[in-house]
Nucleic acid binder design. Structure first.
Lengths: 209, 209
DNA sequence: CAATTAATATAGCGAGCGCTACATTAAACC
DNA sequence: GGTTTAATGTAGCGCTCGCTATATTAATTG
């Protein structure tokens, strides 16, 4: 009966020998994913604790026991989202092709991603960048700075540091514009068209030394 | 004593023969300008009625008597802002030069405008586009659609309707990205550099028929 | 001078917010 | 079984939100 293997919902990746006390009746990781969807759609302040507890089918004390606070859950949600996006982006960059092609692919796939799930349009991080809550926005700023730094380092073999910085800023500017336009309801085709124009400009920049 | 000329603060542009009742002790137009600054900085939901009454040095009933509601004041504020911006944009477009130069100038001056007043960075409309309040966002969407339509019509002599639409979407995407980057604290030089890259892409699009 | 009209100041309503005290329930330990 | 540990459900705290009822003040009107 008490064998570890019978644990139906291990909240961590490794199978633990189930702790004492009443077991958690919901999966905390699933909760993060659900919260991420809500926060992506409506932003940090657009989602209330009541919304979250209703979506996770738990009561407030369970949420606070599991995540500490609304902000704590938001941080876990946006970090999970960022890790997911980062994996996709790095896959786009790691492919054996030129930096121009890679950045073009990055822009184009972003355009598609931003508009492929109408319930969660745009980029969650770009959306969170404009929260009025200082702490929530701070988390988004930190994540976006990390992504900018990563892109910049990726470009160092292909461009001077200054030029890399310029290109990254232009790319981020367009990604953020794409995210906003996706949230405004622009079609996937429209977004891809605009992404390709930006990609062309990046390509020109990389070609002229 | 009761001559109209002695009216110290006519709330309307025309000098009225002062109505009956206790006179308004604040200038409603000034109030709109002050509110516009607050809303520009912090967005619709980032400014409370208490913030507004404190900034206008009035009590809530006076605000509601003058503007109807917080949303009413926001609408007057953002419309005033939009009219102001529209005048500057139309001046940029009306100049006798090519569409490419005009759009390039539009992008560049926007980059400068968005970063010239650190207390109110970015574009107020672009910022308001992401409010969580449906009514406030709706007003911003309406204004931005009007601006898009205007830009599109401006381009009709220079490009096919489809191409005009594409160019406008790309320009708006970059304006919105510039606005967000301005709010993130990017320097004026950085913004202008990115704006010029976008302008170059627009120029290319207009040159290739 | 009243009577009328309108903007003011005081004070607080109802609702929603993030969050928590408290008692209860369900598991592991001995 | 009894004890310990932890997650749960109920209920509601303190606060801020947009907004307003009420009484008061300051002007025009006759």
């Amino acid at each position: 009966m008490s064998s570890p293997g019978s644990d139906p919902k291990p909240s961590s990746g490794t199978t633990l020998p189930r702790r004492r006390g009443r077991p958690q009746q919901f999966n905390a990781q699933d909760g993060v994913a659900i919260a991420a969807r809500l926060f992506h759609r409506a932003g940090y302040e657009g989602v209330s604790v009541a919304d979250l507890t209703q979506a996770l089918k738990i009561n407030p004390p369970s949420l606070y026991a599991a995540y500490g606070s609304k902000l704590g859950l938001f941080e876990r949600a946006i970090r999970a989202y960022a890790a997911d996006e980062l994996a996709q982006v790095q896959q786009a960059l790691r492919a054996e092709r030129s930096a121009a092609e890679a950045l073009g692919g990055l822009l184009e796939t972003a355009a598609i991603r931003y508009s492929s799930r109408p319930a969660t349009p745009g980029c969650m991080i770009a959306t969170a960048l404009q929260s009025h809550d200082d702490a929530a926005r701070g988390i988004a700023v930190t994540l976006t700075r990390q992504n900018e730094a990563l892109l910049e380092e990726y470009l160092w073999p292909s461009a001077s540091p200054g030029k890399a910085r310029t290109i990254v800023q232009f790319v981020m500017q367009n990604l953020r514009g794409l995210s906003l336009n996706a949230r405004l309801g622009y079609s996937s085709d429209d977004l891809v068209r605009s992404a390709r124009i930006a990609a062309g400009a990046v390509s020109d920049l990389l070609e002229t030394p």
